[in-house]
Structure formats: C-alpha cells, structure tokens
C-alpha cells in the first residue's frame, strides 16, 4: 500500500535508478511527494524510506532540514517575499507589509480560504531585480504593491499571472509542490550508466591507463 500513485511510483523508481546509492534520491522523492499532495505526509515518508533504504524518521530528519518541505498543509499559492539586503534596500519591508495587510495574515500563515500562504524568505537570486517575490517558486521582478494586487486578482480569477512577472517565464501557474513543469528523461538506450563506487576500480574508457598520469 504505497503513497505514490502508480504513475509517480514509476517516476520514483526511475529517479532512484540514476544514483549509485538510492539514498541520494531522498530530496528528489520528497519533492515528488510534495508535488503529488502539496505537502509531505506521513505515508509519503514511509514509502520514501522504503525506496531509499532508510527509516521514516531518517526521511523526516533529512527533510526537515530543508525549508521548502512542508510537513503540514499550506495554501494553494505559496507567496515568498524576499527581504534580504538588496530587496530590503529597495523597499521589501513595505512590500511585505502590503502583502500581509492585503491578504490579512502575517508571514508564516495561510489565509482562511486556503489560497495563500505568505513567507518572508532569504535571497532568491534576483538581486538586480529587487524587490521581488515568488509565487509557487515563479518569479516576480521589480515588484510593487500594485503588481502584487494584480497577481492576486489573476490567481483568484483562475488566471496565470506569470506574464506579469518580468522574469521571462510564462504559461500556467503550477500548483504548490510542482517545480519544473517537465522532468528530465534519460532514454535507456543512450544511458552511459550509473557508476557505483563499489563496482568500479578502473579509469573510464577514454582515460589512458598508464601514460599522461600527470593529467
């Protein structure tokens, strides 16, 4: 009785097969669980433990180190407002204040309708485009209160606000938990293969064995 849907079970197996040790799939699988459910549930951790050869508590112990994993339900849209130095210098605190007052909840909380969760976050690497915020990890550059209101209005109306972001990213707004809207697929035929440290003791095929040791 697994947590993952049959389709995601295949994805999970494929992800785990890319690493010499399956424990390396821990973070990708936690993301997959979050993509399926919006947050990381107990049954998800149990199945990830099986898939990675660990225990559920190790999965929780690892996952809880990372900010992006939520162990309780969050809003449909996760609004992350950066207040670090470059954004702070250009008014991020006022922006956060506006976000909080317009949605009626403080950073760290979710609106009653379950639509929005606000977080005050650290630098998200858009410093020249400050201040900025992200919604479900999609960027909105050079943000103003007006821009934020427009984004909220779009989302409430069921439309994608991405084109407003100035981040050269458009298309549909993904659900919380979905990062890339596509997934790397390594075709079986063109795989070079996983290289487990236990099984390999020789240099790879293209490396000269004896000569050019100073390489």
């Amino acid at each position: 009785m697994g947590f993952f849907t049959p389709a995601n079970e295949k994805v999970a197996a494929d992800i785990a097969s890319r690493y010499p040790r399956r424990r390396s799939a821990m973070i990708p699988l936690l993301h997959l669980a979050q993509e399926q459910e919006g947050w990381v549930t107990g049954p998800a951790m149990e199945q990830i433990a099986e898939l990675t050869g660990t225990t559920p508590v190790e999965v929780l112990g690892t996952g809880s180190f990372y900010e992006m994993f939520k162990f309780h339900p969050v809003g449909r849209y996760l609004v992350n407002v950066c207040t670090n130095i470059s954004c702070q210098l250009l008014g991020a605190e006022d922006l956060l204040e506006h976000v909080e007052s317009s949605l009626g909840v403080r950073a760290g909380s979710t609106t009653d309708d379950g639509l929005f969760t606000i977080e005050e976050v650290e630098c998200v690497a858009a410093c020249t485009e400050a201040p900025c915020f992200t919604v479900n990890y999609r960027y909105f550059h050079r943000a103003t209160p007006v821009l934020f209101d427009e984004v909220v209005a779009d989302l409430r109306a069921g439309e994608s606000p991405l084109a407003r972001g100035g981040a050269a990213d458009d298309g549909p707004m993904p659900e919380h938990g979905t990062l890339a809207r596509n997934r790397q697929r390594i075709p079986v035929r063109s795989r070079a293969g996983v290289v487990p440290p236990e099984d390999v003791n020789d240099p790879p095929a293209w490396m000269p064995t004896e000569a050019a040791a100073d390489g």
Binding site: I27, H31, Y66, E67, M68, Q184, A192, V194, A205, W206
Partner: peptide, 17 residues
Amino acid sequence: GSNFSVDVVLHWGAGAY
C-alpha cells in the same frame, strides 16, 4: 561517436544556503 560516455543527472535542492 567517441568512447567518452557520461550521464548528467539533474538533481535539485530544497532550500538551504
């Protein structure tokens, strides 16, 4: 077409400086 073979695995983090 060479004897050089390597897989590039896309991996991602989860928020930790």
